[in-house]
Design a protein around this nucleic acid. Sequence first.
DNA 1: CTGAAAGCGCTTACAG
DNA 2: CTGAAAGCGCTTACAG
Lengths: 347, 347
Amino acid sequence: MRRATAQDVADLAGVSRSSVSLVLNGHGEGNIAPAKQRLILDAAERLNYRPNAVALSLRSQRTRTIGVLTWPSAAGTSSLILSAALRTATEAGYLLIFMDTGGDEEVESRALTTLRDRQVEALLVIAPELTDYRPPETMLSVPTILVNCADPQAGVTSVVPDEAGAGACAAQILVDAGHTRIGVIAGPAESVQTRLRVAGCRQVITTELAAPVQFVGGRDVASAAVAARTVLTQAEPPTALICAHERLAVGAALAAAQLQLDIHRDLSLVSLDDGEQLASQLNPAITTIERPDRAMAEQAVTMLLDRLTREAEFSVKQLAFVCPPAHRDSVVGPRLDVQPEEAASRR
Amino acid sequence: MRRATAQDVADLAGVSRSSVSLVLNGHGEGNIAPAKQRLILDAAERLNYRPNAVALSLRSQRTRTIGVLTWPSAAGTSSLILSAALRTATEAGYLLIFMDTGGDEEVESRALTTLRDRQVEALLVIAPELTDYRPPETMLSVPTILVNCADPQAGVTSVVPDEAGAGACAAQILVDAGHTRIGVIAGPAESVQTRLRVAGCRQVITTELAAPVQFVGGRDVASAAVAARTVLTQAEPPTALICAHERLAVGAALAAAQLQLDIHRDLSLVSLDDGEQLASQLNPAITTIERPDRAMAEQAVTMLLDRLTREAEFSVKQLAFVCPPAHRDSVVGPRLDVQPEEAASRR
DNA sequence: CTGAAAGCGCTTACAG
DNA sequence: CTGAAAGCGCTTACAG
């Protein structure tokens, strides 16, 4: 069954296509006789008429479509970013077309061509975790925003989490709680995201504490467990741990369990990132510094829409979003081993 | 800078639009003089001409676009399904337009209308975990496949994992290894996915073992840890555990660590699902039954494309994909507490 | 107040 | 061998 066109409506109502268009777009008043308006509305209703968006696009030269490029891969991209971007765009009447690059420049280039052919009005590049992104030349022809990745040359505007700030926040929480011996499960050194988080920790710890801090590796759950075990079994173990990622926190929790260390009583723990809602599912729930995925996505899409509708130029090149702490039950003051005389004096 | 149109190419080459179209679409041979063909090709190249896909769609009445509806929410949807669907569609020259329903029928209905207006040729409905899905009436006008969800009335074709088979497979692995006392961390009872997995386990265990099996709850990491601890500390504890989901396996691993139980030596563990690659990151890596996300997505898109290009009707109403086991290091035979005389007799 | 015409960018018969 | 015309479905000036 073919979809009804404006011509079908016009035929049924006994008027011309122009009249149908006028009435259905709210320009009937003062132009079309009230009786005819009713006729047209009824006919449209009866035929279940809806304008063909493709024809509309060709006519108006606007597709109301935003291309989304996942880089280096769609796998791993935050579904929170996706859903927030989706919702914001939909509410404004825009559609999102997704394409994956697979981290391959050749594929990326073809994807950009396809998107350009489809006349997308703007572009969003989304990365699973903060990385550098070097936009190809062709990208410049359409308003573009990078989400969770940034152009080192700052040629393209980006919306990113303040990862260093997040690391600093984590460290500050522990320092404020009174910890002086802090260990950091740092994660893979080649990751931009991890490097920034650790740098933020280091900054706070070294200035506030003037105490040595231990940075150990860990790239997945198992290796984080090993790293945590190593640092927790040495002579003067840290009283608190910072994990650069929630998976590392799972590893740390595993190590603590093996060592019969209670995460509330014996050891404090702060984790960066709770995108997978893993850290918050542990017992006790781990205090985390969250990545503002929803806010970043909303901001990016909103900026794009503003640019498209109001022709407003982007006023900033990089927007770094604060990562808010979620205080849970894994942080308390350091455990002071109670001395007999001290205990006595308390009475 | 405006994009070049076929008219621009025609003007530059000094021919008509028709000739440009003919040559650029490979119908030049025998129709257009070789010299003119060269002229046209050069002009197109010089102007960086690419046909406008919107105009093409209007003309051909084909948008080469598939709508993707995430249900009940985009958050949590497997990025593996997304990336596989993306790749398969892209390779065939099709585009994917995503819309989220947020689990709201009103929103879903609006999304379907929008997709219909945009003239999508087919529809994919994707769920984060196996659930029932009742397609609204309006859906029936375009070829549709449900991925990871199924229509109880079987009105719409669906591609799903064989969750019961996955559960059975997990149980069989432990039975084959010689375990007779098996505990199951079952997960939330209201989840279709979980219910089927547990039913599969139960089936195998009760027929193969004629031994009682313990099913305990667990809905997240923390509660799974509690459940595992309960079952492992009773009088005759199970020698092996099945977790209906990898998050539950993390909980079980935590409980085991607290109880100083070694997952290889003292306790075997099989987990369903490794979509987040959590179970495989533990130490030892946990044997899992994988969800065939990639295969399901490829199959669904391929069926849709076949239907669109070859007009082939769907021949099956439901495709249940086998969930393949990934054997790792968490399964060995049950630990037989070595009796002195037994040990002696072995010498 | 209303219809005929033009045009968005394309391709495919159809004349010549 | 090549160009003019028609038409996909729409809207917006423009005549009347």
